[in-house]
Design a protein around this nucleic acid. Structure first.
Lengths: 183, 183
DNA sequence: GTCTATACTCTGATAGAC
DNA sequence: GTCTATCAGAGTATAGAC
């Protein structure tokens, strides 16, 4: 074996995630990742088919990290308390790791192929809302709550609240939605 | 005047919007737009400083089109009826013109510089919700409703609902939120 | 003042040698 | 599994034709 492995899929993934979080998803470059690892410009193609595959792997890793943060927030709570705590953790994640969050919820993040971590996120959300609405409408409620959080995060990132920030707009909306969802 | 103008800012904008809606924002190329207009690869730089400026112009145009669609939907209605009609029009716009919608709500769409069309969208949303909640909490309610719609649109685009579609998840969430907002 | 020609750098990607 | 070499395409800067 004239050429021994100098890297690994996980080392590449770590470096790619770092660059994505630092510079944004748009500027994630296969070549830059390779250079940071001391490799030839195309060495990564042994591990990931193309740039999109690398991005998808970063997104899956991000979904795992997000789920872990949400589970932490929910531990020891239930009902609307749990939802409120999870909502805070969700928005914190979106605020503190915007590029990684963007990759998690990017176009086709859920649909394309099989993404176990994304499926786990969805299962977690439905389980969480089951404690508020009961079994019958848990899925619909999960869509609503997740939608509200995702939307708030997106509008925040787009800068809608920069100057005309309505104090506590997030809590207000979540409270109203939980009121409306109460059985 | 030895050289008559072969193009104009609005012709460039139209062609750019067409290519963005056809191929997606990622693949909007200054060179391709120039080629479609029969110009040299870099002729557009007389009209737009760089690719980002062109993209911002397309986003502003998109915000104008979205606002027009929402105003159409609201005409002749008020209260929760108006909100429901506008919500339908909003999601239709996001579904039928996904790339343009994405440009309207993209990162820094609202914050960076002065975007009159985006400000008009925000004003419209607050006016709309004032008819439901009254003056005191109209802004917070607008954040909540817009957030819900934006989030649902984003999760739809990401493919969350592709196979486990909860029937009428959107209507369910909007209804719950309106219930919670009712004074 | 408007467009063309040219060139530079960076990107993703492929082919084939070792 | 990694390398070198190479390609096509992108954004963009500059110089100059008219």
């Amino acid at each position: 074996m004239p050429y021994r492995a100098k890297t690994s899929a996980s080392a590449i993934l770590d470096e790619a995630r770092g660059q994505l979080e630092r510079d944004g998803a748009d500027r994630l470059s296969v070549r830059a990742v390779a250079a940071s690892l001391g490799l030839a410009p195309n060495a990564l193609y042994r591990y990931y088919a193309d740039r999109d595959a690398l991005l998808a792997a970063v997104a899956d890793e991000g979904a795992r990290l997000l789920l872990a943060a949400l589970e932490d927030a929910a531990r020891g709570r239930d009902g609307t308390d749990a939802v409120r705590a999870v909502a805070g953790a969700y928005l914190d994640f979106a605020r503190m790791r915007p590029a990684l969050y963007g990759a998690v919820v990017a176009k086709h993040a859920f649909a394309e192929g099989f993404h176990p971590a994304h499926a786990d996120l969805w299962t977690f959300a439905v389980d969480l809302l089951r404690g508020v609405t009961g079994e019958a409408t848990a899925a619909e409620a999960a869509v609503a709550v997740w939608g509200l959080l995702h939307g708030i995060a997106g509008l925040e990132r787009a800068g809608l609240f920069d100057e005309r920030k309505p104090g506590g707009g997030v809590d207000f909306g979540l409270q109203a939605l939980l009121d409306g969802l109460a059985p």
